[in-house]
Design a protein around this nucleic acid. Structure first.
Lengths: 338, 338
DNA sequence: TTATTTTCCACAAACGATTGCGGTAGAACG
DNA sequence: CGTTCTACCGCAATCGTTTGTGGAAAATAA
């Protein structure tokens, strides 16, 4: 019997001369149903490849087993590793994930939020887009009572669970590490000022000078985006300065890689002429030559932690869920570039 | 009026003293509804942030605007680029994607297929897991009339649209390129034999010798997986041979990178002592030093093409959809490692 | 004025699954 | 034998939306 459509509870009920309610209860092992009927129904369901329609269940239960994930980009090591962490945890809990990427665009972030909302996801895991200005679309999720967890790129003004690293401390230690290594003129390729992570990293960088009584040169801070091309541009700007620095701290690994490519095309040698340091411990930093010193961000753990926190909130039965912010620790990985 | 739940068509109907059907038709601009009523309803809907419930719509329409995507892994450059291609095309068509990863596991592939099926995805885009043996779960999709497109890792025995590259030809040309470069003893780090892409690449490699009247040494073919660790293991096996080859053709870039790391830890130099060639043109192959010659696979285009073909099939109204197989062209990218 | 058409809207049945409630057997009890 | 209880199952409403059909009022035609 090759049915074009799928087998429903109604089909089973009709073929077995039962009511749909009985079939439903039999499949869910309800005590009201006799063992004989249960066996009959379950067997028939198996034989006919019956699987409950998640859409119908969702409509009835007013919730789905899907978790919406929004990231700025998929291809970055950090996010794909985080996605792996999210996927592993949610999968184990019987959820599937719906991944949207914002392409670092505010408009797309808003649109995707709406789409996921329309799909009644049980919760959101979000890392905010670079160009995101207002957070109204996220606030509206909270207003609707939908669990929401931010990771890495968080929104300070929204009360929600958050998973992050201490960007300030990590950048502070990274800068101090360079200072202790003997570098005097340390440039910083910073990210956009509206992003917390780049602000924090910049502040950490700045304060490291203060604590070590070193003068801080504003001209050595080149502001830009977070990707490879931004690193390339930043290095070109750097070369226009009267005096080149002897070290660069990049806000992300892609930026460091962009700088890396440009430096190799100049006459400068890493690390003798100029040291280079990244941020994230992307796989590539260990494979290029010279390998690049960086700060290891626990991407997978951030993803899995965010997922765990979200599931906790989803399953929470009480009236008021206590949100918390998890700060995961980073690790400085010393390599050949410094 | 902060409603805990979301605004539904019923709410609007009640507040406006209309029936739900009128509200629904007004929102969908049905000719039966007067302009005055339409304006009233639309304005009220906007003011109260109404958005249709995709779940309920899906249940009614018997289909969703979601496309299920299953890949073995997310973090690989190839798949994340393909995902970008898929996402861009489907997003433009008003679809969202649901991404599952099989982790190269057959069981998980079957489970995920079921989950996506339960969620009534409008269609599937799949790249098969390494350990996938039977394809029954995919055949059952076809039987249910659900559009399905394979890309890269295809199933030969299933009649469906497919997007692939000519792995045989690409490997053939790659090997011939090495032969013309003057390399005599060319090893091949091959993939698992049950995968078409590794079989095809192996055959291309083999036949290149035949065509050029060079003896083919079976011992130089090391069989393994597709990832970095497999490349490492393969190189270690290679070192146990009495005579080292003067070139290696790896089945994938990660395998090449694995070999790359191991070679650098040995006394051998690339390309003087041993040449190395990968497959996929992952970003990293251009950034390591020496950079690695590879075959460029149009990952983004494969994804976008697969998505386009799927949308075509989803929107197809006729009775019999003519499946086709798109073979995208590859490009040999010569770098320092050969 | 009456007959016919047009305009505009409501009723109700779906889609597939879940669940409170009610009801009919038979068993158990007095 | 009459009553109560238990075991088991069906009825019908529900989730939010769409859509075929019917019907009242208004507009037009005769």
């Amino acid at each position: 019997m090759i049915n074009k459509g799928r087998v429903t509870i109604k089909d089973i009920a009709r073929d077995l001369n039962l009511s749909t309610s009985t079939v439903s209860r039999a499949l869910r092992n309800h005590p009201d149903i006799s063992d004989a009927t249960k066996k009959l129904v379950v067997q028939y369901a198996n034989e006919n490849d019956y699987h409950p329609d998640a859409i119908a269940q969702s409509l009835k239960n007013m919730r789905t087993n899907t978790i919406g994930v929004m990231v700025p980009e998929i291809k970055h090591d950090f996010f794909s590793a985080a996605l792996n962490g999210i996927e592993d945890v949610t999968y184990a809990a019987g959820f599937t994930i719906m991944v949207c990427k914002s392409n670092e665009s505010y408009e797309r972030e808003v649109l995707n939020t709406r789409a996921l909302l329309s799909n009644r996801v049980a919760g959101f895991i979000v890392s905010i887009a670079q160009n995101s200005i207002t957070h109204d679309h996220f606030q509206s999720l909270k207003d609707k009572g939908i669990p929401l967890v931010f990771f890495d790129r968080i929104a300070e003004d929204i009360e929600a669970s958050k998973v992050m690293i201490d960007d300030y401390e990590a950048a502070f230690k990274a800068t101090e590490y360079l200072i202790n290594k003997g570098y005097k003129k340390i440039a910083h390729f910073a990210g956009p000022d509206n992003m917390i992570i780049s602000r924090e990293r910049h502040n950490g960088y700045k304060d490291a000078f203060e604590k070590n009584n070193i003068k801080y040169d504003k001209n050595y801070v080149i502001r830009g985006g977070l990707n490879e091309e931004d690193g390339m541009i930043a290095f070109q700007k750097l070369q226009e300065l009267p005096k080149m620095p002897d070290a660069i701290l990049a806000v992300t690994d892609p930026v460091a890689i962009g700088a890396f490519v440009q430096i190799n095309q100049s006459k400068l040698k890493i690390p003798d002429d100029i040291a280079l340091m990244g941020f994230s411990n992307n796989a590539i930093t260990s494979l290029v030559s010279p390998s690049i010193t960086t700060v290891a961000q626990p991407a997978y753990e951030m993803g899995s932690t965010a997922a765990k926190m979200l599931l906790e909130e989803i399953h929470y039965k009480g009236s008021y869920f206590q949100h918390r912010t998890e700060v995961l620790s980073t690790q400085l990985i010393e390599r050949e570039s410094t």
